[in-house]
């Protein structure tokens, strides 16, 4: 068994493909949820599932450009969102209302995303098998 991933080798080839959505609603740095959430997303890539990420509320702040954390002495994990494509995690959805409420738009984000209305986001959530919120 692989100590880091918890034995993913055993599970590959199980043949089940589910729709996983990771819903990010919290800002980075103030709490650990965004960072540890991202760790789950990266691991999920090894399971050949249909993975997407949704960003709502303060979760949109995870994606804003220009994060510099040196003075906090904590890791700036924002470049990881750009690396997700390399893990075949390409479905990043952001709720438009959450952006607008915060005076942001898609150009303020460090990675290409699909901006969805609240209604479209709700419709998309409804189609998922497993929804994990951070």
């Amino acid at each position: 068994m692989n100590e880091t991933t918890g034995g993913i080798e055993d599970d590959e080839g199980s043949g089940i493909v589910k729709k996983f959505m990771f819903v990010n609603r919290k800002a980075p740095y103030g709490t650990i949820y965004a960072l540890e959430g991202l760790e789950v997303v990266l691991i999920s890539a090894a399971f050949d599932q249909d993975v997407s990420m949704a960003f709502l509320d303060d979760g949109v702040y995870q994606l804003v450009k220009g994060q510099h954390t040196k003075a906090l002495a904590v890791k700036n994990f924002s470049p990881t969102y750009r690396a997700l494509e390399g893990y075949d995690i390409e479905k990043l959805y952001v709720e438009r209302e959450s952006l607008e409420m915060r005076g942001l738009n898609a150009d303020d984000l460090l990675v290409p995303v699909e901006v969805l209305s609240s209604a479209a986001m709700g419709d998309l959530m409804k189609t998922q098998d497993v929804v994990i919120g951070f």
Partner: peptide, 17 residues
């Protein structure tokens, strides 16, 4: 907390439940 407001915004406009 705005969680309920966010939930209702997304759920009522899209999909119900």
């Amino acid at each position: 907390n705005t969680t309920l407001a966010s939930c209702l915004r997304v759920v009522c406009k899209g999909g119900g439940g």
